[in-house]
Design a protein around this nucleic acid. Structure first.
Lengths: 136, 136
DNA sequence: TATAGTGTACTGCTATACGTGGTACACATA
DNA sequence: TATGTGTACCACGTATAGCAGTACACTATA
């Protein structure tokens, strides 16, 4: 079962935390294509949040192509699809990478340690569930 | 010479962009220990910003241990030092890594492509200038 | 000593983001 | 018909981002 945890008052906004965790769950295969997510109000009640906050997170995930929403039915994990142009896609990766590496290097981790951490996480995230991902 | 570029109205706050770029410049060695940074007002004028915005970015970098500020003299690249406990340090790395990987995987990059991108950037960032970093 | 440049700390103001609370409507399903 | 769904509002309070201006203490240099 898909579990979500959230910490209000953290450095990261609540709806962002939801986005991060859903992204990760989809990436690892913990949530498979077609799986239903908890309804807006149900998840809001679980996490003691306002339903608008949950809806905001879901809406962004739909915009990103991670989720599909069907009016009156619920929200579901979407079939993999590209929502950004090639340039925009690369631009977003570069920015994310730049932010991450600057942070890691500032924390005084060595390049070796960083590469190792990345590899470990990727292994951990992708070996848990088999996934078929065809990419150009 | 150390150059900075900033885009207002972007998804990332201006003072954050300054922080990111200074972090990166220090990490790559483009800015060496002891180097002076542009003064608060000078940089503010260059970037057409308020000096408070620059001061805010510098203040955070001082808090992180990246910069030293000497009253009446200026701000300088600090000698490497740890400002976080071991636990906090790891916690921050994990969060940064989680955010980055979720983003990259959502963008539909494969683990192989991600590892390659990380390696390339680290090479590019660290081969430009030699750095001595002793880590436990 | 006087002056200029430095970091720092305020106050006030505007705009935006975040989150809550409530209401309402259209859709789907049993 | 009744219930649960996504979605779209509005109002409100709080926090963050950024600008503008002012002020003060420090440092260096003429």
């Amino acid at each position: 079962m898909f579990e979500l945890r959230v910490t209000p008052g953290g450095n990261r906004p609540i709806y962002r935390q939801i986005i991060d965790q859903v992204r990760q769950a989809v990436a690892t295969g913990e949530l498979a294509v077609g799986d239903a997510l908890p309804s807006v109000r149900q998840l809001a009640e679980e996490l003691v949040l306002n339903h608008n906050t949950v809806a905001k997170a879901y809406a962004e995930l739909v915009r990103e192509g991670v989720l599909d929403s069907r009016h009156g039915r619920g929200v579901f994990v979407a079939k993999r699809r590209r929502v950004y142009s090639a340039g925009e896609r690369k631009r977003r990766l570069d920015q994310a990478l730049n932010v991450f590496l600057s942070e890691a290097l500032t924390l005084d981790y060595t390049p070796q340690q960083i590469e190792e951490a990345v590899t470990n996480w990727l292994d951990q995230m992708t070996t848990s569930k088999a996934k078929d991902s065809e990419v150009d």
